[in-house]
Design a protein around this nucleic acid. Sequence first.
DNA 1: TGTACATCAGTGAACGCGCGTTCACTGATGTAC
DNA 2: TGTACATCAGTGAACGCGCGTTCACTGATGTAC
Lengths: 197, 197
Amino acid sequence: MTIQKTAYHHGDLRQALIEAGQDLLQERGVDGFSLREVARRIGVSPSAPAHHFGDTRGLLTAIATRAFKELGQRLESADAAALLSDGPIEKRKHNRLKAQGRAYVDFAMARPSYFDLMWRCGVLDKNDPELQMAGEASFLVLRRAIEGDLVDVNEPISPEVIGAWSMVHGFARLSLDGAFAHKPEISLAMILETLPH
Amino acid sequence: MTIQKTAYHHGDLRQALIEAGQDLLQERGVDGFSLREVARRIGVSPSAPAHHFGDTRGLLTAIATRAFKELGQRLESADAAALLSDGPIEKRKHNRLKAQGRAYVDFAMARPSYFDLMWRCGVLDKNDPELQMAGEASFLVLRRAIEGDLVDVNEPISPEVIGAWSMVHGFARLSLDGAFAHKPEISLAMILETLPH
DNA sequence: TGTACATCAGTGAACGCGCGTTCACTGATGTAC
DNA sequence: TGTACATCAGTGAACGCGCGTTCACTGATGTAC
């Protein structure tokens, strides 16, 4: 299939909107995001995005879905690497947790605006099935490391999972929000040790 | 001193702005906040707030300062109550931590918009000395419970403090952002037990 | 005690901004026969 | 293979919105003498 770039039809506007939206988001943050600016960047009329996403919420939801997928992949990679590491078997679980914690915070630091967006539920369509799936999938990666790879997702979630997620999420948020700005002795490494052994 | 309410001079506009601002913030959140609406609510011209706060950032910073003071007081009360509790002395520290964790999350749930605002550094003047002091003061309450009441604030912060803060902060954030919306088995109590003994 | 005057506190109309969304439209594409 | 026509994709001007901020102003207050 050859993509003919014509004056009128964009070719793949949907994709272009998402990509320009991602750029804009990273440059200006969630609060600086606007549909008009996205349209402007790809040289399309202000009303063009509505054909594909309806409104701002729709485009942001699509971007958030991608962000969750990226987070999930990063967690998976980190987890897989930790699984392959050598050392006594009883330390394996702790290593997996630490690796995922590091990956989680790395992601937040590398893509602060994505991280903001993913949890800013006021601007997202939380009922979007793709968004929900992407979110659940990345959560499951963490859960498997703690509760075992054969965990039944219908069982209640263990306190360790929520504790670990909360700690790592809180650390990422506080770091991004500058809470540790004048406290240079604070590092992620020092709290990762307190994750369950 | 009698306060004469005249048509022209408000009496205590600064105070009135803060109070109306607090109401508006709680009703509409940080994103729905506007200086014009605050002025409208207390029946004053749109430009009146500028005399006292300069701009939006100034008023929000004053409100955030109050919010930090309230948080600090809640932490103090919880801590004091835990100190008075009976039981073996070695459990005292753990009890203080749990009590503060509960107070922290309670505050976030009771005043979600305050909690948002306090960490939304983009809309605050982080160099404001009053804001900084109020923030440090509430942090110190937590630190004392872990490192001892005679802690030297110039010493490096212990990993336990950062871990506990991160976990509790993360739990509050995730709760407010609806991350646990479809997971009713999740409660704060279950992660408080994992705080250092 | 009276008075002149500086300062303080608030007015209100106006400006310019960027935004989301609507609307009637038109150019390109693809499909049925 | 050609053609008619429905559908799809994007246009671009316009509307109304609420915002922060500016500006010349005026009413009230307080102080010096």
